[in-house]
Design a protein around this nucleic acid. Sequence first.
DNA 1: ATAATTGCAAAAGCTTTGCACGGAA
DNA 2: TTCCGTGCAAAGCTTTTGCAATTAT
Lengths: 141, 141
Amino acid sequence: MEKRERLIMRLKEQGFKLTPQRLAIIELLEEGGHPRAEEIYERLSRRYPMLSRATVYNTLEVLKGLGELAELRIEPQAVRYDLETKPHCHFLCRRCGRLLDLGAPRGLERLLGKELEGHKIEEVQVSLYGLCADCAKEGQE
Amino acid sequence: MEKRERLIMRLKEQGFKLTPQRLAIIELLEEGGHPRAEEIYERLSRRYPMLSRATVYNTLEVLKGLGELAELRIEPQAVRYDLETKPHCHFLCRRCGRLLDLGAPRGLERLLGKELEGHKIEEVQVSLYGLCADCAKEGQE
DNA sequence: ATAATTGCAAAAGCTTTGCACGGAA
DNA sequence: TTCCGTGCAAAGCTTTTGCAATTAT
């Protein structure tokens, strides 16, 4: 099943309404790319000039509440969003700013629900920073 | 050697000036607690009412540049700071908001300098979220 | 002496909020 | 019909910036 269909189902199931704005936001998120809220707003504004930032944030909040959207706290400036909610590593290139998915080390997912030193783990984020393959080649620093 | 002395040495070594403001900021950071910039500003303002936010941010920037300060991107709202720059895990309690140090899994430090799928790793942050031991006991959710 | 640093105030971003209108169910 | 959702605008926070005055070396 497509992510899109699953999200639509879960929205209705929970009594949330499906609006063209929400659908557009979901479809954009489905493309991956880990957009920031501002990016989502800007890209969708072209097609829906009346779209407001409040709606973007509202929709993201709803999807987060459903547990269907991960909020990546990897850049200091802004949150990025990811429909993939299973724990995995992210890599942020300090040169081109691209945010790439890396695999998940075996055991990362098994952390969820466990206790570490008495603290109950509900979410895990592994963020790696450096130079991506492309930038390492081209720039030589 | 104390962290404080090491930082003073490194500042002078690199031609940076040591000012009372910077010393105070360093001493506060030495206490740990992973303060936010605003927290540093507020706490030091009591003793140094003329202190400005710009100076706080400036000093944090200098210490980051020296590689002596880690910038924790673990909360969406604000960056937290940590004089411990060796990679280790952090735990943020969603109830009380405390940020705790957890140990580093063997192998975490060894990631630095390595390549993963062609990407050169320069920094690692592992952030865990959930309920801390105290909150899990008291609140029962 | 002199170049770095400070404080202040304004500005820049991201995100949140209040409210009246409009539309999905 | 009844809420939920939307758009707009304003406000809240964190962080950055420009500049003249100050200060560490």
